[in-house]
Design a binder for these strands. Sequence first.
DNA 1: CGGATGGTTGACGTTAACGTCAACCATGTT
DNA 2: AACATGGTTGACGTTAACGTCAACCATCCG
Lengths: 145, 145
Amino acid sequence: MRSSIPKRMKKQVNKPEAQTADLFAITELAREFGISTRAIRFYESKGLIFPKRVGGTRVFRRRDRARLQLILRGKRLGFSLKDISEYLSLYEADNSQKAQTEMLLEKVNSRLDLLRSQKKDLETTIDELTEIKKLADEQLSQKSD
Amino acid sequence: MRSSIPKRMKKQVNKPEAQTADLFAITELAREFGISTRAIRFYESKGLIFPKRVGGTRVFRRRDRARLQLILRGKRLGFSLKDISEYLSLYEADNSQKAQTEMLLEKVNSRLDLLRSQKKDLETTIDELTEIKKLADEQLSQKSD
DNA sequence: CGGATGGTTGACGTTAACGTCAACCATGTT
DNA sequence: AACATGGTTGACGTTAACGTCAACCATCCG
């Protein structure tokens, strides 16, 4: 932190970030979401996201960023990238043809079934842990003060 | 299906299964839960279960079976075996000493936080899919009959 | 001009969670 | 006695989801 040289007011010449707030670099997103750039590239290689390219460089728009968020949420829920890929496709469905819409509806329904049963599992797990917590709490308040 | 030979009433001589309904063989459990025996042995090798041994053969009691169920539920929720291992330890806690109970309580609480945030994620996912479903439903009922 | 910075594509390494043999043993049935 | 059945322990193979590293390119900056 040398402060002898006359500072030209924070320098701030050409920071590549925060240009438009509509476009993002790969490292920006990586930092924002706490993942590696490698992971992001990997998701692209698996067809989960398709950012624009400027020259060779990836440029992420808001929708690319949004998809990335969906991916990470899916991961937190324990889904595989393959699962997540199918899940993402439900968001960009083609409603122009009846058959397509019916297909979509079926997929959405079966996915909802899965999620609801997962929710059941989650709730009973929470209940059980809450019970354990209760017992521990009692144990502490009862015996020694 | 040769039925010419006199059948001795279903044979039923010495089926090793369903002896006590309190003890189970590895293949029984594997079939019951739709997993492989290899998986079960793997869980044991990782210290998640410890069935008794009769000679070399594994014998599962009801509590071993119960633990196995907990493991599988954990897997459905997307947890790693390591996570599940820690989770299982919460069930067999030692409440004899205050310090131990306090430790347990902290672990239970942080685990509960995690589960609750996962539940949030799950609910918003369900909501979003429900919305998609609604749109698809409307699309179908509206246009073509 | 010479770094420093940030991006790129391979390509190989790694960890988790098993699958898949092979080789073996014990027991009951034919 | 011979075999079918069900169990055991290695040991190696496999897939997913990245980590890590090398070699390279473009740009900015003092």
